[in-house]
Structures are given as structure tokens and as C-alpha cells.
Design a protein around this nucleic acid. Structure first.
Lengths: 347, 347
DNA sequence: TTGTATGCGTTATCAG
DNA sequence: CTGATAACGCATACAA
């Protein structure tokens, strides 16, 4: 049914040349007569020829595809990353295979096998919150498989990594709250086991310290790994709000938390920032929709994806084993819609 | 560097059999001795063999991949569709290649060529708003290329299609507003050229008619094709709000419009639903974040993607040309957070 | 039931 | 500079 694509052989026959000559002309090999080359290229263009990537892959033992392991794509932060990855990959002639883990360790393992079975040339991985044992990745890596970590990195894996400065991001957000007079600042912690969470918590602590605000464990909400639901947040927040010295501000350490917290304030009819001030990580334009006084730490998601893909491809295409690995750190942006002055208040 | 994958040849050598026997055993061919088969399968399992998909593709002249043409993935509605597509595709052993058009005709054409050059077995397409001339798709289709349209379909293309009942979706939303006493209901129209927009407008008209509300052209805002920005909406809305008989309710005919409109109300400090009531299409949980009195028409995005992928794959794998095409219509869900009674008001 | 030979489209090697 | 040939891994037609 589908019309057969034109091949090198067809061109060879039409031009009375050998397939090797056609191949050389098209690949711009040095040992080719310029006239022949022009003849071939003109004809190829005329008949709209392009090489069969599958045959090339078989021959070259590479698929020109990369795998992406990510928790979910229906999330602004991650879909922006994917867009960045796709963009850089297409630029280099690579296609991508996306595999979603939904934060599940089991699915991450399956997904890793799946990608290997698809013969991807390398893998970009952002681990699931559930994952404690990275041997499925490390084993692959030890077999010489190019792997680059992004966002949620595997610290014990010595490879290229792309992250944002999470410490600084949280520090900026919390500093903003503190600068506006808030001193009872809670920190809602996304899956604790992740380095990004730890870094964000450190940023929070640093900002508190610089403002002479004591760190209080009871202003911390922690969540176990796995997919976070709104109900989980609601329950813990309700409890915290009932404390005698309940917080006057909250820092949300992840995209999903920030959105869910906005929802929480809506449903509980909590005025922002009068009853509680908010700042948090978010790549959704939630502050525009929800409340202009919500301050947001925005991550350079597209750039992060782009950088990760570029590093992976350079790794794939490098002739000799890489000895020096790079950890690229991108910077978050603090987005403040309303002037801080308007929000300032005394305790 | 990368360890060589095991091949049929390796197994043949190890077991003292021919490659064809191995192939037959693995593919569960009829002409094979059950004992031999078991021997081979056990060994294959032991050495962790799986067939090289690239070699299979070359041999079978199919890539087991499908292309997706979509405007953007960093949008909840579309990323949910992608998730549905990926899910169904993986189920059938297909991989996907996503190409984003950013609503640009030019990029859509390039993207179509790109996918063809990648030898995808078929294409799932959701056309860009800008696209008026579908010849790049139709030409492919006429050459026997399997194509399935989803969401924004090409009406003149006789193939499988998956859509939601847009007329009913808009009808439900507008009916909800009318039932709550609103009679000056504006309709904000996304790219008019699209069938989905036309259908949604029809649903709006139908709901008005059933409530004896006259249809007024000046309650309509139209946007040209292309990427919609917040500023565009702001400008037109500002104008409409200055009308002597400005609307008391608005229906938003797309995801992005609904989000942007929520933003507009925030920035202009318009109380919802006191000053203006809102309903609109959205797959983002915007009503939770923004305002529980915002009523939302939610599309079954995951199911839509799933169905589209299944139809495409059935088309790819069907032996004879298909003569009967199916248009699958899925249903939207009207999500009302607050009781209608609370919102009722007199004019 | 099994083995041999061939080809899918491309490219590298080697000979001319 | 060009051509013949082999090989990438797999699956099938044909032979045994």
C-alpha cells in the first residue's frame, strides 16, 4: 500500500553508477569526482531521496535515539524539560523515546529495560521519588552505556549531570518572605530522600539563619516518596494551622506542592498574603492565575532539558571514554508580581 | 565501549543450531519442534536475548514507530493526550516521535517531512491553528500513509478521527451559566477556522436559544490563528467590559483561554462570580487553584490519545486497505465545584 | 522439522 | 576516483 521509498540502488540504476559511488556522493566522501557528486546530488534532490535511517542504524550499530526516563509529562516543569530535550535532540538528528515512571520504582526498572531493548544510544534520567536502589541504572552505566542525570540526580553515579541551583532557589524564596517581615515560615518538603529536596531545605535554613530566625522542626512538613496527592497536603496543613504558633508564611519546595497549596488556600478560604504568605517552586504561571502576591521560584526547564540532551549526545558521540564529567548548574529565577512593600507586615 | 548485544547468531552457535531455527523458535513459528523451541527459549532467556528491533525494522520494512504532530506539549490538555498515546503505543510495541508545531503552518510542514524521513509507520495529527492548506498531509495520505486525526481534525480527509463532543461540551457549560440566571453571556472564540471552535460556538448558540437568550455578535470575541498571548485577550476584554451592556458571564472556548481569563480577572481585580461568572474548557485544575466557582468543561484527554493511537495502529497493521472509517466521539465532563444555587443572581 | 541462501538499505574495505 | 563485495541482525522462501 505505502509507496516504496527511493533507495541508493534506484539512483545507481538510473544514473548508471554503482551504489558505492552514490553513497560516497551523498555522504560527501573525499574520494569523489565533484562532477559525479553534483550529478548524484541533483538527481537525489529531484527524486526526493533521503537515506533510510533504519539501514544506517543497523550498519552503524546505533539507533540515533535517546531514552528519557521521567516521572510524568503532564506537569509543566517536566513537559518544558521534554520540549528542551526534543529540541536539542532534533537539532542533532536524534529522536527520543519518553518513558514515564509515575514515581514508581518498579516502573522505573521496567522502563530502563524497555529502553535498552529499544537500543537507544543513551539515556537521560530523572529518578522517581520511590527509587532508593539505583542498580538498574548503575549496572547499565558500568556496561558503558551513556547516561546523563537531570534534575533528580544519582549522586553516586559519576557522569554528566544537569541541575538547577536548588539551594539558591529556596534561599531566594525564603529570603523574600523574611525580607517582607515574615518570621514564622514553614517549609513543605517534597520527597525527602531526593538531593534536590535536601538542597532546598538547606537553602531554607540558610535564609532563616541570615535573618536570625531560629529553625523549628515543627514548621516542617515531610512527605514520603511516591505520588503526592492533594489530600495528603490538606491533612498535614490542617494540623499545622491548628498549632498555637501557626506559621504566617510557607515555602513550598516543589511545583506540585505549590499548586496544591494554592488549592488548599482556596478551599480553606485562607487569604494570601494576609493570613499566610506563600512562596514556592513553580513552573506553572500559578501566581498569575491564583494570586499576584504569590512569589514563585521558576526553573529554567527548557534550558535544563536542552543541556542534558547536548551532554548526552556529546557523550554518545565521543570517540574515547570520558574521564572528566561536568555538573552543569542552572539558575532559578525569582518572580515577584507585586511590590514587596505592599506585603510587608509587622508581627 | 558499549557491550555488544547478543544475537541470534550467538545463540545458534552456542546451541549448534541454525539461525533460522532460532528465529523460528523465538517467533513461535508453526514449523518447530516443541523441544527445540523450549531449548532455544530457555537459553535465550538465560542470556537475556531480545531481538534487535532495528534489524527487524529493516527486514520488515516498518519502523514500529508512529509520529505525533501536535502544537505543544507544555499544556495540560496536550500532555495528557500524549500520555494516552504513549501508553497505547507501548502496549502495542510502538515507539512515538513527538513533533511540536507551535501553531505554525510552516513548522507543521517541516515536521511532516521530518517524520516521513524518520520512516514512521503512521502519523497522528492535530493540526495547527494557522494551517489552512492541508496538502502536506493529504498528499502523504494519498500515497497510502496511515494517518489519524485527533482533536483538531481535517474534515476533508477521509480517515479515522477521534474528537470530543465539542458542541455538547460548550452547550453544557453555557447552559450551566444560563441556568444560574446569567443572560449576558459572552463567548471567547479560539481560532475560528477550526471545526472544534465552530462546534463550540454552535453549542453556545444552542444553549442560548433554549433559554430564550438572543444571540449577539457583540458578545463574541474572535482571535486570529497563531499562538494566543495574554495581551491579546486583555486588550479585547478591556474593550468589551467597557460596553454599556457589558456581559455578566463569559464562556471560554479553550484551555488556554480559560487560564488566561482567570489571569485577567486576577490582574483586573474582577470578582468571580460576583462581577462576572465564568465557565470554560480546561484540563488544568484551574478551578481549584483559581476559584471554586469557575465551572470547567474537562476533556477526556488520556482516552482521546489512547483511542487515536489504537486506531492508527489498527490501520497500520490491517492487511487490506480500509474502506470504512470511524469517527470516535468522546464526551466531556462538566465540573462544578460550588452549588449552582450559591451563584444564582438576578439582573 | 531443520538448514541454506537471500535480501532489507547502507557503508566500509579492498581491488581496480 | 569508481566498482564489486561483504556485513550489520533478522526472517522467509526454498531445499533437504
Amino acid at each position: 500500500m505505502k509507496i516504496e521509498a527511493i533507495t541508493i540502488k534506484d539512483i545507481a540504476k538510473a544514473l548508471g553508477l554503482s551504489t558505492s559511488t552514490i553513497s560516497r556522493a551523498i555522504r560527501n566522501h573525499y574520494a569523489i569526482n565533484p562532477d559525479t557528486r553534483k550529478l548524484v546530488l541533483d538527481y537525489a534532490k529531484k527524486v526526493n531521496y533521503y537515506p533510510n535511517p533504519i539501514a544506517q542504524s543497523l550498519r552503524e550499530k546505533r539507533s540515533r535515539s535517546i531514552g528519557i526516563i521521567i516521572t510524568e509529562i503532564a506537569n509543566n516543569f517536566f513537559s518544558q524539560i521534554i520540549t528542551g530535550i526534543e529540541s536539542a535532540a532534533q537539532e542533532e538528528g536524534y529522536t527520543t523515546i519518553i518513558s514515564q515512571t509515575a514515581e514508581s520504582y518498579e516502573r522505573e526498572v521496567l522502563t530502563t529495560q524497555f529502553l535498552e531493548s529499544k537500543l537507544v544510544d543513551g539515556i537521560l534520567v530523572c529518578v522517581a521519588t520511590e527509587t532508593k536502589d539505583f542498580s538498574h541504572i548503575i549496572e547499565l552505566y558500568n556496561r558503558g552505556f551513556p547516561i546523563v542525570c537531570f534534575d533528580r540526580v544519582i549522586e553516586e553515579l559519576d557522569t554528566h549531570k544537569v541541575v538547577v541551583d536548588n539551594t539558591k532557589g529556596a534561599y531566594d524564596g525564603v529570603t523574600h518572605l523574611a525580607d517582607n517581615g515574615y518570621r514564622k515560615i514553614a517549609f513543605i518538603s517534597f520527597a525527602e530522600s531526593l538531593p534536590i529536596t535536601r538542597d532546598r531545605l538547606n537553602g531554607y535554613k540558610k535564609a532563616l539563619a541570615e535573618h536570625g530566625i531560629p529553625y523549628r522542626e515543627d514548621y516542617l512538613i515531610r512527605f514520603p516518596p511516591g505520588n503526592l496527592t492533594y489530600k495528603d497536603l490538606e491533612q498535614k496543613m490542617d494540623k499545622m494551622m491548628k498549632m498555637k504558633n501557626s506559621p504566617d508564611a510557607v515555602f513550598l519546595s516543589s511545583d506540585r506542592l505549590t499548586t496544591n497549596f494554592a488549592r488548599y488556600c482556596r478551599l480553606r478560604n485562607i487569604k494570601v498574603p494576609d493570613q499566610i504568605a506563600i512562596a514556592g517552586f513553580s513552573n506553572l504561571d500559578v501566581s498569575d492565575i491564583f494570586n499576584p502576591s504569590l512569589t514563585v521560584v521558576k526553573q529554567p526547564a527548557f534550558e535544563l532539558g536542552e543541556a542534558a540532551a547536548q551532554l548526552l549526545i556529546s557523550m554518545i558521540e565521543s570517540k574515547r571514554p570520558i574521564t572528566e564529567f561536568e555538573t552543569r548548574v542552572l539558575h532559578t529565577e525569582l518572580i515577584i508580581r507585586e511590590s514587596s512593600a505592599k506585603r510587608k507586615r509587622k508581627d
